[in-house]
Design a protein around this nucleic acid. Structure first.
Length: 431
RNA sequence: GCAGGGGUGGUCGAGUGGUUAAUGGCACCGGGCUGUAAACCCGGCGGGUUCACACCCUACGUAGGUUCGAAUCCUACCCCCUGCA
């Protein structure tokens, strides 16, 4: 099995992704469809990812309150997690991570990584930044120093991180942005994407990507951590990083279509919908996804950035999305909210003080098998860090397990029913 | 026993004659979190009536007193702390 991996590497060695036609960085195979929903397998140089997939967020090189063992174990079995360019660039710095052999080696994670470009921070850091054609000037939230991030720098940092999937550097307009503002922002994103693409390709040619798997490591890792899910059996992959483009345009469908056309014209390994779930009405997000996702290239992964609630995931799978990431399971776990098959449960509430039941009667996770609501509430109330750990675990399980069930339902042609029952469940309320 | 200090709302602790139902912290109660400036943020928090505006009642150890007005001043008593015997 490691033979095929070495073969893939041999093919990739010394050739740029552009030169080697057919040798893609990632490959998506669709196995089943139901309506716009699709189930498939996305192969990357490190892990094979069943889609639709949820990707836990690990901004600073850690999925907060979670050990990597737990992410890998069958219960969660996360195949890919996120890292963030802006945050890792500030601390510990791209040079440090490159010196450590890239983000995988630095954090001890052998599966796939997707790195966000820092584009979202252009938006979320609001008052701390100034945008120009060249890039974005940030006031570091860590020490107040002035920092400059551009498409080129973002690509350089992401090469140093060595992620499997690199995101273009974009600008995210407010969800309620006017057509004028959204158009200007979308065009800036288009220009930044072109620059991202150019610099990314240079960096791949210059072998600046730290995430390449060398033969020694491939051998060592297959011996030390036998994990069939890391293998890419039919290895025709180039071994390079993949680059995703991002469709912007706020709530304006004409701008979204124009953005999609411009993005496809540049050409990427995958396509993302950005700038959603940033304050606009939920119906707007669903409409944009419903209109745009099906028009995105059918043979490439479609990634809805930053979304969402469990309902959002199911609803957007139904509209044609393959990949999601969101901080909700981890952040809300740390802030006392559990996601359950009957909707959200506020662990803080006094009504659970003597409740012997699990967070979710229908949940098979280790936390629900072992601990009561009363205990989890006690941990939260007393500020014990185990509260964060257990709630995060449960929430990640709920998200990842929901996606497993979504995939299963699509494959068995049962997604429509699954969707209806799931939505009924989460809106029924916890008691 | 003598001298000094002190007793404030669930709790710690401000306030030392007049918007004081009483600053603030904690606790408690509730809400929020969607490409993570987040183990965070916001709100409530004496009791009662009211949808609400509002109104009424009870509160600063206990009991009296001074004053138009007291948690704040005076007297007595109770209790706690420190020092000296």
């Amino acid at each position: 099995m490691s033979d095929s991996r070495e073969e893939g590497r041999a093919q990739a060695a010394g050739s740029s992704p552009r030169e080697s036609r057919g040798a893609q960085a990632i490959a998506l195979e669709i196995h089943a469809r139901e309506g716009e929903a699709r189930a498939g397998t996305l192969r990357t140089r490190r892990a094979t990812i069943e889609t639709p997939a949820f990707m836990p967020v690990g901004t600073l090189g850690t999925v907060k309150a979670t050990r990597f063992e737990a992410l890998e174990a069958d219960e969660l079995d996360a195949r890919i997690i996120l890292g963030n360019t802006y945050h890792l660039w500030l601390r510990p710095g791209a040079e440090t991570i490159a010196a450590m052999g890239g983000l995988h080696r630095f954090i001890g994670w052998e599966r796939a990584l997707l790195t966000d470009s820092g584009g979202f921070q252009v938006w979320s850091l609001g008052a701390l930044r100034k945008i120009s054609e060249e890039g974005t000037e940030f006031r570091s939230h860590v020490d107040g120093s002035l920092r400059f991030l551009s498409p080129e720098i973002s690509m350089e940092v992401q090469a140093a991180l060595g992620s499997e999937i690199v995101m273009s550097f974009d600008e995210c307009a407010r969800g309620d942005a006017s057509a004028e503002v959204a158009r200007e922002s979308m065009l800036l994103t288009a220009r930044w994407m072109k620059r991202s693409r150019a610099r990314f390709d240079e960096l791949q040619r210059e072998a600046m990507d730290t995430g390449r798997i060398d033969e020694r490591e491939a051998h060592a890792s297959s011996v030390m951590t036998p994990d069939s899910r890391l293998q890419t059996p039919d290895s025709k992959l180039s071994g390079a990083q993949a680059l995703f483009g991002i469709v912007q345009g706020a709530a304006h469908l004409d701008l979204r279509r124009e953005s999609l056309a411009r993005t496809v014209e540049i050409g990427f390994d995958g396509y993302a919908l950005g700038g959603l779930s940033v304050g606009e009405e939920k119906s707007v997000m669903y409409e944009v996804v419903a209109e745009i996702a099906p028009e995105m290239p059918a043979h490439s992964p479609r990634y809805l950035m930053g979304v969402g609630t469990p309902e959002d995931l199911v609803e957007c799978v139904a509209r044609g999305v393959d990949m999601f990431d969101c901080v909700l399971p981890t952040r809300n776990g740390r802030t006392g909210q559990a996601f359950t098959s009957r909707g959200k449960l506020n662990v803080k509430n006094a009504q659970w003080a003597r409740d012997r039941g699990p967070l979710d009667e229908r949940c098979a996770c280790g936390v629900c098998r072992r601990h009561s609501r009363a205990y989890l509430r006690h941990l939260y109330q007393t500020g014990e860090m185990l509260a964060s750990i257990l709630l995060t675990h449960h929430n990640l399980f709920f998200f990842l397990d929901t996606m497993r069930r979504v995939r299963q339902a699509i494959r068995s042609g049962d997604f429509t029913r699954f969707r209806r029952e799931f939505l009924e469940g989460v809106s029924s309320g916890v008691d």
